[in-house]
Design a protein around this nucleic acid. Structure first.
Lengths: 237, 237
DNA sequence: CGGGCCCTTGACGTTAGTCAAAGAGCGTGG
DNA sequence: CCACGCTCTTTGACTAACGTCAAGGGCCCG
């Protein structure tokens, strides 16, 4: 139980909250194990709990009525989801599913309300976490609306090798079906888009991406999609 | 100044907050007038203020480094933006621009912090507002990732005639360039996608949309995009 | 009347989805 | 150890969707 509290304290949401304020809340939570493929909560369901990922991977997704799934988040150690539980009467706006064997800290909504009521510091922590979610969503929206599939992959790879320069090798953290969903495309398109990154010095081997130059990739990720023709002409000559 | 406080109190964010808790905060805000095209705040700028739309229309957008703009929100009376200001040290994750002559209530970040610190009720109100933003973003992502342009328009039109049934006429609340941006497409595509809704009983005349049957449109908005061929074959025969 | 902006239309190219098939791992059981 | 079946991934051919470029019409306002 010791490593559990440490993990939860260093999580995204509680990172900047004094130890004392969170201990009580965390101690009321329970650890839930979820195997790959297990559903954690459903879209539209009453937001009964807050979750913190202690270990593993969780995807947040939106199901359209025709059965089409859109991944809106992929979370790992220290990430937090189900913030809707902080507000009485809310429902989950996404579904959540473990995409790898995972350990979660589950905190009951009522305990949460009580904690928030009695401790303003916690409330602000939630506000911060939700704003952070917001930023992530806005970023994703921006990517989706004004970048090609290949550029979104570039952005994704770059997010995996933050602060690196020059050459670097990154490990793809989950399978390509999920990466495709997360980036808003089909697996086939992902596969092809990886190919299109080769001219920019990116090679994929199994679950590893070899990036020749982070700078070059960055330039590609930011460039205007509408001038692909001129780029291409310039490049194939 | 009287109608101002009323408007602000009935805004999205303060709607469920007791009058007393907000009066003080609102009184510290200042009214800002913005004409069409005026920039309200920039992406990346320190989040110095919270804004509440009293009148007019505001768009939130994300600018990619290549100058491509993605609209991530379109706000009107009672809507609130710049919640990032509630957390010290935050920056705006989007830009904001008036797309029509607008009146805004601008509340300084420091006043906000003070108010939140001294009143937990307000803090929870912000949490609720941010969660609400979150839901909207998630909805938009879902639409973008798993629906065609025509379906997104259908969803948009339906959001304008909530709770209506059968035939109905809605007024497009802003110009088509902005609608296109908001729905993640180019104006040309919007124009063509409107045509594609005609078989489903939608006609556009100037800034009005005539919907023959809300139910039929709803069915179209939710249907699986991948079976368009069979639908089409079935329809043109 | 003229200029500017918004909107539409047409022709065309690129991008990504669909359908189908085959290759690459990988664990299981013989 | 190998054959088998499974899932993940890649590839190919084709199609649909959307963006781009260019032109033209309608409308407002000076």
């Amino acid at each position: 139980m010791k490593p559990l509290t440490e993990m939860a304290q260093s999580s995204q949401i509680f990172r900047n909250v004094p130890r004392m304020d969170v201990l009580d809340l965390i101690s009321k939570g329970s650890v839930k194990e979820a195997e790959r493929g297990a559903s954690i909560h459903l879209q539209g369901e009453r937001a009964h709990s807050l979750f913190i990922v202690l270990e593993g991977w969780v995807k947040l997704y939106r199901m359209s009525s025709c059965g089409n799934e859109a991944v809106v988040g992929v979370l790992s150690n220290g990430d937090c989801f189900g913030e809707a539980a902080a507000v009485p009467g809310e429902v989950f706006s996404t579904g959540a599913e473990a995409v790898a064997a995972s350990k979660l800290l589950q905190i009951d909504a009522q305990d949460l309300w009580h904690a928030i009521d009695s401790d303003p510091v916690l409330c602000r922590a939630f506000l911060g976490a939700t704003l952070s979610d917001n930023r992530a969503l806005v970023h994703q929206l921006g990517q989706l609306k004004s970048h090609t599939a290949a550029q979104r992959i570039a952005d994704f790879l770059l997010s995996l090798c933050k602060d690196e320069v020059g050459e670097c090798i990154v490990v793809l953290p989950y399978d390509k079906v999920l990466i495709a969903g997360w980036l808003g495309m089909k697996p086939e398109s992902l596969s092809r888009a990886f190919r299109r990154l080769e001219p920019y010095g990116v090679k994929i081997r199994k679950d590893r991406a070899l990036i020749q130059s982070v700078e070059r990739l960055l330039a590609f990720a930011d460039e205007d999609p509408s001038k692909s023709w001129s780029e291409k002409a310039w490049k194939t000559s």
